[in-house]
Amino acid sequence: MKKLSKRIISISIMLIMFMITFAGCQNKTNSSNNESNSKKVYKLGICAYPAFYTWYITQAEGFFKKRGINVKLVYFPVYSDSVQAFNTGKIDMLSAAVPDIIAPYVNGIGLETVLLLDNSNGADGLVARNGINSIKDLKGKSVATEYGTIEHFFLLNALKKKGMTEKDINFVNLSISDAAPAFLSGKVDAASLWEPSLSKALAKKDSKLLVSSKDTPGLIPDVLVANKDMVENGKPDIEKVINAYYDSMEFYVKNKDKAIQDMAKGAGISTNEMKVAMSGSKLFTIKSSIDAMDKKEDNYSYLPYTTEKIARFLQMVKMIDKMPDDTKKMYNSAYLKEVLKTRESTPVPDTTK
């Protein structure tokens, strides 16, 4: 009996030692994994659009580093190139207009919309030369913008409201960065542009703004999307990015001049140009961003509603072959809700002032 007891005690000791050793190995493994995640460099694509320039605040003021995440901003002079880079897995996150993420979603590119950046409130517009005073006057005239982008959609929508189609104009396919100079040099009669190119075009003598996104509130939302790999393997990192973004918003509220300087430097424009460009963007708090994703409304304040309307239009003009199965699935407010638990407030600047 004593021999049996000793044997049981011996086995118990061996089991305890094994468990301690195994736990130590697990801790080392977990520590190694955490260290690996902290070293991963996430690439976030941006292009020349005011609300996307807010990421330069995050970068310049060290908020990514503060949140323990390594993010590299990748600038694309041609907007459609940024969308293509995201679709092919060359970047992990993308700042984009909602119309430009519908086709990738429909085509099976894994993505989730994790943050609402802004609604265009005048940052997009259709500008024309002297003598063209209305949309109807564009008939037979040359109009430049970048095919397949939000500005193309905006142009088609403006024409449709006046009973016109792309066939009624001479459509000129140019990148936004090229469309503005083409208008300024008189090579085209009109151009559909976003800021800061829009302000540069409007600076031309006798140019006229025919319509802007201020006339269609909620029609052009801009968002941050994460790719499938990041969604599946980097949920905590998505929350860190969102936290870093709202650190930037708080900094923008308290240090407006420095925030504008950060954006202007990154954009390569003057601080005054940056202020004007940002005046066309309506920014969102965490709560209002969550509401836009989750609070069901039959109007453009509800992102899935907006997305469905845009998708139907894109299908009508043959930009997509089929409708998304459920536009609500494109949006995931869970990350924002987690971030909201740890923040006392989420102010955003009033860019119109």
Rank of each mutant, 00 (worst) to 15 (best):
A97T: 10
A97I: 06
P99L: 12
D100E: 15
D100K: 11
I101R: 08
I101Q: 09
I101C: 05
I101V: 14
A103W: 13
A103L: 13
P104M: 14
Y105A: 15
V106R: 13
V106K: 12
V106M: 11
N107Y: 13
N107G: 11
G108C: 09
G108K: 12
I109K: 14
I109G: 13
G110M: 04
L111F: 00
L111T: 02
L111G: 03
E112G: 01
T113M: 01
T113Y: 00
V114H: 08
V114A: 09
L115G: 02
L115F: 04
L116Q: 05
L116N: 06
L116P: 00
L116R: 07
L116T: 08
D118L: 02
D118W: 00
N119R: 05
N119Y: 14
N119V: 05
N119M: 03
S120R: 07
S120F: 06
S120V: 06
N121D: 03
G122E: 07
G122M: 02
A128Q: 08
R129L: 12
R129Q: 15
N130P: 09
I132V: 06
I132D: 09
N133R: 07
N133F: 01
S134H: 02
I135M: 01
I135V: 01
I135S: 00
K136W: 00
K136V: 00
K136E: 02
L138P: 03
L138Y: 04
L138D: 03
L138G: 02
S142I: 01
S142D: 07
V143S: 05
V143Q: 05
V143G: 04
V143F: 02
A144S: 06
A144K: 07
A144V: 06
T145S: 15
T145F: 09
T145K: 08
